[in-house]
Design a protein around this nucleic acid. Structure first.
Lengths: 329, 329
DNA sequence: CCCCATTTTGTAAAGGCTTTCAGAATCCGA
DNA sequence: TCGGATTCTGAAAGCCTTTACAAAATGGGG
């Protein structure tokens, strides 16, 4: 069906070894010969068979993006952005990408083995055992939106601490002093970073921010609305609610409206992620942009570097955030 | 590193051919022998090498999902759902999935050739030439959320006509007579289906629905809000706005609010897709659920059937819709 | 014009599995 | 117990590249 290296060899009058080199190590074949080879290839519509190549090279040029997150997947806009970034970068470096959920890989070890990939990017709350398992199998591994102390592994994260500061300083600049954080139970890493940052920064600015100022809730609109109702019913009602993502912030806005409070006049609301929903809410939601696309790109680049055997790969890459001010705060 | 079929052969005392059969055609090897093989495999942590298998079989068990849509990708929640469905199904049937945008495949034919896949699912507005190209290359092709008359190809779509009817009949049951459709410039197929359905159904129910009742806009919140402003400023203002997706509906709600109109009292609003944003809007958005996940599953199943050489594969599969009534209408 | 150092090219052996074909083992009825 | 029909198993030929290793060609300097 498709022509092979032999066909090209025959037509161009050189050996298959030379054809092979013309394609994968052009500089190792003389200009004139290379020309002939490419012409023949052109005529025959030849292009190297990736499978055979993988077979011979013992390398697939294929990587996996594993989303380690209960329930959610690519449906989470933030992860979809990361995914997009990975796709962009891997496309650029000619790596093939397979996307999967960690669950799929955990279930059947055999399955995991079958998907022959050279490396994997683990997004979110990856289990350390999974990392060990993969590394011990000789795979290159990179973490995105997570860190794993004690592991020798490149991580790509956003500047959670700085981001929280941006939000808080903005709110303070608008005169807010009673600021509450509505924290979703996300992956431990993210939850912890934002929680800690909030307390530290609030404290350092002399805000009355003990742990009572932080309210945990499940990562759904309803749970957030419910939790926020409680917050807004306190005698010393907060003047600003800082949702740790846009969904929670939307829940906060709902709660406010149900209580007859106006946003942002009576209570300001901010989110994190800057998802598309921000522009659909009324008022539009002020949100901290986390550059998921860039995080994806960078993690793919790190993995690529790992595969290329580069040394001195940064163990930690931090992507800056940016506050997008809109009507809600 | 990894053990091979030879290791298993040696340890179990049978030939590699038998080991191979034990794994891919278990019924063709005697119970007793099979047992021995599996035990040895267990001990050696052997599992067949997918690359080598693909090489020998001349088949990759790998399929591609191509999103044919300018700009948007997996970031579009609806497509993410389709994608999820495809992932679920292909996981079930042990097919590997690569996700890509049509743009990536168009750019370099060579590239497309390199990704050796057995088949492809084209989502959205695929170019007929791309289909011909792929089919002529011997790939199995399936269309999802699109149809292509004149092509011999299975298509999986949602019941656009029925869905539009559900929405209109619901609105009419609530007493609405002046209903306007806010139609986004999506893929020609979808736009046309919804447009036509609206006109036919409205007409058949004696609604004053000429083409003036349909307003086209770009698929963004702002464009929708702008278009809707015009609709709502007419002397015979519509009492209901039927957005052809949730983003447009959100835009309609914005426009209404800007004009001081209450939703749903002064103007009812409905959307399509039932995306997560519905629950975040205030009031919550009544929307027509299109089962993207199911569409994905079914298209993967069709592709699988095609690959399995099955005959009598339905050329058209229609997935039913369901109206989710919430506060906005 | 020869010789040695360099490039360039070719030969042949993997790489791990599937599958055809033929021979070996097994089963069944008589 | 024997013959023939079945079912199992094994040897070997691919599948398409890459890559030592070795041979051939090329280029310069003397």
């Amino acid at each position: 069906m498709n022509s092979t290296i032999y066909d090209v060899s025959r037509l161009s009058g050189v050996s298959i070894a030379t054809v092979s080199r013309a394609f994968s190590n052009p500089e190792r074949v003389r200009e004139h010969t290379r020309q002939k080879v490419f012409e023949a290839a052109e005529v025959l519509h030849y292009s190297p068979n990736a499978i055979a190549r993988a077979m011979a090279r013992q390398r697939t040029d294929k990587i996996a993006f594993l989303i380690c997150k209960e329930g959610a997947t690519i449906l989470d806009e933030f992860y979809a952005r990361i995914c997009n970034g990975i796709m962009g970068e891997s496309n650029r470096t000619d790596l093939e990408l397979v996307i999967s959920t960690a669950a799929d890989w955990d279930l059947t070890a055999s399955n995991a083995k079958n998907k022959q990939v050279d490396g994997a990017i683990l997004g979110g709350n990856a289990r350390p055992e999974l990392v060990s398992e993969l590394q011990s199998r000789g795979l290159a591994v990179v973490l995105v939106n997570n860190r794993m102390p004690g592991f020798d592994i490149p991580c790509v994260v956003s500047d959670e601490y700085g981001g929280v500061r941006q939000v808080l300083e903005y709110l303070m600049s608008r005169g807010h002093r009673r600021i509450a954080m509505l924290a979703g139970r996300f992956s431990p890493y993210i939850l912890n970073e934002r929680y800690r940052a909030f307390l530290e920064i609030a404290k350092s600015h002399g805000l009355p921010a003990d742990t009572r100022a932080i309210k945990l809730c499940d990562p759904t609109v309803e749970s957030a609305a419910e939790a926020c109702r409680e917050l807004l019913s306190r005698p010393d009602r907060p003047t600003a609610i800082f949702g740790t993502n846009d969904i929670l912030a939307a829940g906060a806005m709902k709660a406010a409206r149900r209580l007859g409070l106006r946003v942002p006049e009576d209570v300001a609301v901010t989110g994190i992620d800057d998802t598309t929903v921000c522009g659909m809410l009324e008022p539009e939601l002020t949100s901290l942009r986390i550059d998921g696309y860039r995080m994806g790109e960078l993690s793919a680049a790190r993995l690529q570097a790992l595969l290329a055997g580069e040394t001195d790969i940064p163990q930690l890459t931090v992507v800056p955030t940016e506050l997008r001010v809109r009507g809600s705060a």
